[in-house]
Design a protein around this nucleic acid. Sequence first.
DNA 1: ATAAATGGCTAACGTGTGTTAGCGAGCAGA
DNA 2: TCTGCTCGCTAACACACGTTAGCCATTTAT
Lengths: 200, 200
Amino acid sequence: MARIIIDKNSSRKEVIIAKAASLFREKGYKAASMRDLAESVGVEAASLYNHIKSKTELLHEICFGVANRFMHKIEEIEGEKILAIEKVEALIRFHIDEMIHHYEEVYVSDREWKHLSDPYLLNFQNQRRMYRKRFAAIIENGILQKNIKPIDATTAVLIILHAIGGIESWHRSRQKISAEALTANMITILVGGIAVNVKV
Amino acid sequence: MARIIIDKNSSRKEVIIAKAASLFREKGYKAASMRDLAESVGVEAASLYNHIKSKTELLHEICFGVANRFMHKIEEIEGEKILAIEKVEALIRFHIDEMIHHYEEVYVSDREWKHLSDPYLLNFQNQRRMYRKRFAAIIENGILQKNIKPIDATTAVLIILHAIGGIESWHRSRQKISAEALTANMITILVGGIAVNVKV
DNA sequence: ATAAATGGCTAACGTGTGTTAGCGAGCAGA
DNA sequence: TCTGCTCGCTAACACACGTTAGCCATTTAT
């Protein structure tokens, strides 16, 4: 009888969620079957249901786990007493970091949330909209402070978030450049793209 | 007996492909069923097979249709005698234009190509890799010409392509700003992010 | 007008899906 | 050691999927 192996600080449920994130990222939520997941966990499909309620629950856990982390971070940053452009940079750094270190979950939350079902779907979409509004508000503040170019804040947020989502490709491509170099490049382009050019 | 309505310059097959693109975009390839597609075309599921070979064929047609358009465009731009940074701008404009006017197909080609099956999947991935290499080569040229900042070209391509992919969100959001304004903003941020700052 | 091709239809197939029921092995605490 | 709970298993379910076969109506070409 093959039990799910767990280490000290993660339950069997958490192990399943982690494997699910990896699988959903690779194949997409719909294309990944519970039997696939079971195999990757090392167990029969039916056994999974001793730990989880449904396939959708796995998606909830992944999506809201990620969403909550981002919500907490933006709250933290909003409270700091720094320039708006610095807040934007901090936020970008956090996004990149998340994308590098919690790749699978962030990716899934980004691309597969459509498959959430209705009480959760609505909630998620609301949180997402809120987050973007608050991000845009920071940028608008920077425009008033004159350390950000007078651009459409919504568009800027859209570009920034999706650009970072593209780290997916970097992740796949055998890490030609280091995480630090990647971050530096992205900051140069993104912050450089919206910041008022003070130096040179 | 309900026939598929066609206009002068599109066959029944093309009508089906267009509807498929719309459906695949909305639900994802796997989640969109042939019965869904049939309903949106106004016909029974089995009838679709008088015009197409399989569900996968629909995905091929969509993905390679888009890929070919981009390949032709980059070839055209490579041949022009203009600065590298201008080539990049032209390419970005084309991407944005495609994303605005052939939204569904471009989106599907971007997000659902994973579900292509193997002779086609490999081919598509190769074309994608080629395209990005050629895009990166233009940027590297611009760095040598000193009209583009000395950044990692691969990262820049990655950012640009994904940022434009984000127009998806704009498309959904009731078009708060015009297509022209959106394009102008994106050019400001993206080109501004990589260009050497000559003017202020 | 007649023949052939086209493009619908219904019915059904096999397969893969998420999930439940029910059973038993092994670990935990008394 | 005994008891109960955790967590695995096999078997099976109902259903949704892509696709095929075979039939008939309508359009097109001769």
